[in-house]
């Protein structure tokens, strides 16, 4: 009879054999004992190929930018270091952008990690909670109120990815059907990732917008959020920002202080 803990010992050996290339675990048999290593290799291959494919599916633009051979190599180094911690494979690879940022062979592509961050953000936006985007009627309802007294709630799908590189342009020219070409500008871009209905969209932020949205996310009033945006971008235009928030579904609704929501209007 096996000693207690034999399953844990086998699992530890199998894990090391699959992820780290350690020796095949003891105690395995096959019709022909000479086949054990080749049969075990099926599991190792399933896991490795499955995880690399999961990353390639989640990071298609990174895959296209670096090519398959480079991507395979980078993904295999990453998965040995950072195997999934959860069975929810949808979000496997949240740490891949940081890994790419510190991966010496990718040092010549300084924008790569930020493009990966944009792709990771898209997955989160895709699976985020549903919420009715802010509507013109929501805004009309607070139009007469003091802008110190109401604020905007961010849409749960909204993700903001700041970069020192033109990541939205790089991402867009590497979409299926698009043709990569010279960049029109090397200027920094911050990506706004949104999902007003069921379709994820990526738009470059205009000056001050990221700061405006960050302030809204902290619960600031509309007036305070405008002030925060103006502090970094003097040209920030609140009316234009509201129009873009409506157009791209960046916010979910209007928030009022609790004492006011109960007042008859």
């Amino acid at each position: 009879m096996p000693m207690p803990g034999e399953m844990a010992r086998f699992a530890a050996q199998a894990r090391a054999a699959i992820l780290d290339g350690a020796a095949v675990p003891d105690g395995l048999g096959a019709r022909d004992p000479g086949q054990v290593a080749r049969r075990f290799a099926v599991y190792r291959n399933n896991v490795t190929v499955g995880l690399v494919d999961a990353l390639a599916t989640r990071f298609p633009v990174v895959h296209r930018l670096v090519g398959d051979a480079f991507f395979q190599g980078a993904a295999r180094v990453f998965l040995a270091r950072s195997p999934p911690r959860s069975p929810v494979m949808t979000f496997y690879g949240d740490a891949f952008p940081d890994f790419l940022g510190g991966f010496p062979p990718a040092a010549a592509l300084p924008w790569l990690a930020d493009v990966a961050r944009l792709e990771a953000a898209r997955t989160h936006a895709y699976h985020a909670a549903d919420a009715g985007p802010l509507s013109p009627a929501d805004l009309a309802a607070v139009a007469e109120r003091d802008p110190e007294r109401w604020g905007l709630a961010l849409h749960p799908a909204l993700r903001v990815v700041a970069s020192a590189h033109p990541i939205v342009a790089i991402w867009a020219m590497n979409q299926p059907g698009a043709t990569p070409g010279p960049l029109a500008s090397r200027d920094a871009e911050t990506a706004l990732v949104a999902r007003p209905g069921l379709d994820v969209r990526v738009v470059p932020a205009e000056p001050g917008e990221a700061e405006f949205l960050a302030a809204c996310g902290r619960g600031a009033s509309f007036a305070d959020a405008v002030e925060a945006a103006l502090a970094t971008a003097a040209a920030f235009d609140p009316a234009r920002a509201l129009a873009r928030i409506l157009a791209h579904g960046l916010c979910a609704g209007v928030t009022l202080p609790e004492t006011e929501t109960e007042e008859p209007s």
Partner: peptide
Amino acid sequence: AWSSHEGAYLDDLLPLPYTDETLRI
């Protein structure tokens, strides 16, 4: 089958021996 050990998820359906220990598990 099993797929997780000590915090790593191996994304495959891995085999186990059929023993009194694993029956209890």
